[in-house]
Design a protein around this nucleic acid. Structure first.
Lengths: 338, 338
DNA sequence: CATCCCAAGGCGAACGTTCGCCTATGCTGT
DNA sequence: ACAGCATAGGCGAACGTTCGCCTTGGGATG
C-alpha cells in the first residue's frame, strides 16, 4: 500500500524511471526484452499509476463535475446515470455534488470542482436558475453545459422539448372531448413548471377555452403534493373531468386522491402524467403519460460538453430531445353531458 | 483560465510563493501587512488552489470512491445521497462509478479509483458479491466498507437488519390470521434475497407452518417482475391470502396484478412490501411496508469508512441499522374460512 | 557596545508524472 | 578502418503544491 512509483519499478528493472513511463504508456522505442522486463517488474511489485500526478503534469484530470438536485428521485437519478455511463464510455470519471433543496451551497461546490480542475461541469440544479453568481462562475470556469436555465446565459442547454411535454397531454385530453382540464404543477418558481403552464394556457386558448387559474394547483413535484392538490382542486372545482399532472410522482398522489373521492379513473376523470416513471406502467389504472428520455439527455449532455472541451470556441449549440406520449389506461372520453 | 498558481500570486505580492502558501493556509508567521497584500493579490488575479497538486504532495485526495449498482432506482439512489451528504459534511468529494447489471466492470472501476488515489471506497454492488477478484482488490487497496457481502470477507459491512426486513412482515401477517402466505423475491442469486427467504421459511416453521416452494416466485426487483410473479402465483396457488413482496417497486406490480384478477386488497388478499418507497404511501391501497433507513445507512457507511481511514488497524466492526414496520391499508385479517 | 533572540520570510526538496532532447552504442557502407 | 547513422534509453525540467529548515535583520538585554 505504501504507494509504489515509477522509480520503484525502474530500480527493479534497471532502467531510468522515464523509460518505465514510456513503456507503460506504449510510447518510446524500447527493445522487446527491456519492455518485457519492465512490465514484469511493474506487475511484481504491484505498480499502480498515480492519476493525480499524471493530471498535474498533463493539465487534464479526465474528470467531469456534476452538480445536481437531490437525486433520490428517479428523474434526476436517470439523468445522472445517463451522464455517468456516457462519461465512462469516454474514460472520464464523475465527481458528484448534490445540493440542498434551496441550492444555497451551489457556489461552494462549484469552487470545489474548480479546485479539483475538472475538465467540465454539468449542471442539473433548477433551484439555482436565478442565481447570478452561479452564472458568473460557470462562464468564467471550465466548459459547462446545463439541463436548466442559467442566469445570464452563456451556458449551452441540453434538455427535453418542453412544448410536447405539456401540449401533447392537453391536446390528447381535448381530443377526448374534455373541456374542464385541471393541472397539477411542480414548484411554481421553476422555469420548467412555468413553461408548461404557459403551454397549457396557450393550447387551451387555441381551442377557444378560457384559462382558469382555479383549475391550477401546485403539487411541489412530490407524491403528497399531488394528493393534496387534487383534494383542493375537487373541493374548488368539482366539475373537472381531466387532470394533467406535471410529473408521475404527483400523479400517484392524484390517483389516490381521486380514488378516495370515489371518482373512477378514467370513467369519471382522466389523468395524464409526465416522465414515464417506472411505476407508471402499473399504477391503478396504468398511467397515460409523456415519455421523457432522461438517460439520453444525460448522455447528450456529456457529448455536448466534450465538444465544448474539444473546441472551446464552438458556438453554444443547444440540444433538445423530443418527447412522446405513452397511452395507457388512465384516459378516456369525457363523460357524457359535460 | 490559464491557471494562475501560487507563483503568480507571489510575483504580484513581492514575496516567495511558499509564503503565499503559508498565508493562504493560515500557517506561518506573517505580518498582517504582508498577509493583506497577499490575500488581495490572490483575489485580484483570481487564484484558485490546485487540489491535484495539493493531493499529490499531501498524499491524500480527500475523495471517496463509490461503486454502485444502477441507481436510477430509488433505493440505491437513497444510499448514494446519504453517502454524498455525509461525505460533504466531512469535506470529501465523491467519485461515482455505476456498474453494468452483471457487475462485470467492477474490477476495472476499482482500478480507476485506486489510480485516482481515493482515500476510501464504498461498495454497493450486490452483483459482485461472489467475485473473488473484487474481494482481493478491496483487501489490498485503500480502506473500504461495503453494503453487501464481499467474497472472502475482510471488508466491514454496513447495512440494514435483514432479520426484521422479512420477519416483521411475516409475523404481522401471521398475527392477522393468514396461513397461506406467498412471497415475491428479488433476484434469487442475491444474498439479501436468500437471507429474506431463509427468514420467511424460519418464521413459518416457528409457527408450525410448512415451507411451500410453490408460494415463492422471483420478481427480479422490478415492477414488471412483481406483476408477472403475482399472475404465476395466482395461477398456481389460488388459495393464498397474503403476499410478502421483497421490495415496494415489485409490490406496485403485485397490486396491479391482484386488481386485474379481481382480488380486492386487503379484503381478499393482504400485501406487505419492503423499502418504504415514496410511492408506497399513495398506492391503491396505501402499502403496509418495512421502512428502511437508506439515507442513514449511506451516512453510516461514510462514518465507518472514516474511522477505518483514521486507524487502519481498527477491527472491522459491522454496522447494522434497525428497520421498522409502517402499517398502512394493504393488510387486514385473513378472510373468513381459510 | 556586543550578544542573543525572535519574528518574518526565503529557500530547497519532495510528491509522481510526462515530454523533449541528448548521448552512447553498435551496425552499415565504402 | 573510419565516417555516418539509426536506435535504445538516459536525463533535465516542469506541473503546483507543502513542509521543514535556514537566513536575515532589528530590538531588547546585560
Amino acid at each position: 500500500m505504501a504507494s509504489v512509483s515509477l522509480r520503484d519499478v525502474a530500480a527493479r528493472a534497471n532502467v531510468s524511471f522515464q523509460t518505465v513511463s514510456k513503456v507503460l504508456n506504449g510510447k518510446g522505442n524500447v527493445t522487446p526484452a527491456t519492455r518485457q522486463r519492465i512490465i514484469e517488474a511493474a506487475e511484481e511489485i504491484g505498480y499502480i499509476p498515480n492519476a493525480l500526478a499524471r493530471s498535474l503534469q498533463s493539465r487534464s484530470s479526465l474528470t467531469l463535475g456534476v452538480i445536481t438536485v437531490d437525486f433520490s428521485n428517479t428523474t434526476p437519478a436517470q439523468f445522472l446515470v445517463g451522464i455517468e455511463r456516457e462519461a465512462r464510455r469516454h474514460g472520464l470519471s464523475v465527481i458528484l455534488s448534490s445540493l440542498e433543496p434551496d441550492g444555497s451551497d451551489c457556489v461552494r461546490y462549484l469552487r470545489v470542482l474548480m479546485e479539483r480542475r475538472v475538465d467540465g461541469i454539468i449542471m442539473n440544479a433548477p433551484a439555482t436558475e436565478e442565481d447570478e453568481e452561479v452564472g458568473r462562475l460557470l462562464r468564467a470556469g471550465p466548459p459547462s453545459v446545463s439541463l436548466h436555465d442559467i442566469a445570464g446565459g452563456g451556458v449551452p442547454f441540453v434538455g427535453l422539448e418542453s412544448e410536447g411535454t405539456a401540449a401533447f397531454p392537453i391536446r390528447h385530453l381535448l381530443a377526448l372531448g374534455h373541456r374542464r382540464i385541471a393541472m397539477v404543477t411542480g414548484f411554481r418558481q421553476r422555469h420548467s413548471a412555468q413553461r408548461r403552464t404557459a403551454i397549457y394556457r396557450q393550447v387551451l386558448t387555441e381551442h377557444g377555452l378560457p384559462y382558469d387559474p382555479l383549475l391550477v394547483e401546485d403539487g411541489e413535484w412530490e407524491v403528497e403534493g399531488g394528493y393534496a392538490a387534487t383534494h383542493r382542486l375537487l373541493d374548488r372545482a368539482p366539475g373537472i373531468t381531466a387532470i394533467y399532472v406535471q410529473n408521475d410522482l404527483m400523479a400517484v398522489g392524484v390517483l389516490n386522491a381521486l380514488h378516495e373521492r370515489g371518482r373512477r379513473v378514467p370513467d369519471d376523470c382522466s389523468v395524464v402524467g409526465c416522465d414515464d416513471h417506472p411505476v407508471a406502467a402499473r399504477t391503478i389504472p396504468p398511467l397515460t403519460t409523456v415519455h421523457m428520455p432522461f438517460f439520453d439527455a444525460g448522455a447528450a449532455a456529456v457529448r455536448l460538453l466534450l465538444e465544448r472541451i474539444a473546441s472551446r470556441s464552438t458556438p453554444p449549440n443547444d440540444v433538445i430531445l423530443p418527447v412522446s406520449m405513452v397511452y395507457r389506461a388512465s384516459t378516456a372520453s369525457a363523460p357524457e353531458g359535460t
